[in-house]
Amino acid sequence: MRLMNSQDYGFSATAIGGLVYKFMCLCYRSLDRVFDIIYWPVISLLLWGFTSMFIASTSSFSGVMEFFLGGAVLWSLFWRAQTDVGTFILEDFWSRNVYNLFASPVTSIELFVAIGLIGLIRCILSFLFLSFLAWGLYAFNIMDIGGTAIAVFTSVLLLFGWVIGILIAALIFRYGLRIQILAWSVGFIIQPFSCVFYPLDSMPGWVQGIAITLPSTHVFEGLRYAIATGELAWQPLLISLGLTAVLFVLSIAYFQYALYQAKKLGLLTRFEMA
């Protein structure tokens, strides 16, 4: 069997519908999946909201609230997108459903389209909830940044979240459940380098070298620029969008490779017995 051939790129709307139906059932039948739309983002919003209130009251620095709350709300999108891919894949491992799923005619493309669709719905719900909460608690309206800016920022963060989620899913297929913690922990590693709550040029040189390669850094730099000037820095944003799109394709290719390796080594069937 080759690594990938044309049939692996095809997809059936009915199969995607079946998978979306499964993820929806998982969402409303599992309190965890409902809880995680709200819990961590709200904690983060409260934390950064109070922090920004304190800083605003003790310094003359303007736009503190927008910087921190805008960062918190947008970061929750990346977080949601990334962990959703990992946890929805892990659900099949936990349920010992990997065997039946991969013995069925489902393709990886169908699987990721379905996860993407359900993830998008969950991201929108989470984003709307946080936006209303930020407005209610701190009188911060994220839409003041501008509809176009929000659309570009969220696109890059969603796509980048999926990239990381797909890479983690690939690693889980290759190395099994012993590395499942990555599904929740990788976001914490990426966050400090993404300049979510501080500007890029405030970081040490070696950190800047890493940060600049992350599409998320350009989003948060762009956010601060938009808040400060009311304009969008199009060029870095488009570069980061392009970079994310390339990473997205590469992550899918890596997933296919990891799945192929798992099949070569007979790992898919061993996960069932784990």
């Binding site: 059936s12 009915t14 079946g18 998978l19 499964k22 059932c25 039948r29 659900e91 069925s104 069932e272």
Partner: peptide, 22 residues
């Protein structure tokens, strides 16, 4: 020794696979 999704009902699991198989 294999399973489907444990938190889903029997009906829901069969609906999922029925759709996957068209």
């Amino acid at each position: 020794f294999t399973s489907m999704n444990g938190v889903l009902t029997v009906w829901e699991n069969l609906m999922v696979y029925g759709r996957i198989y068209g």
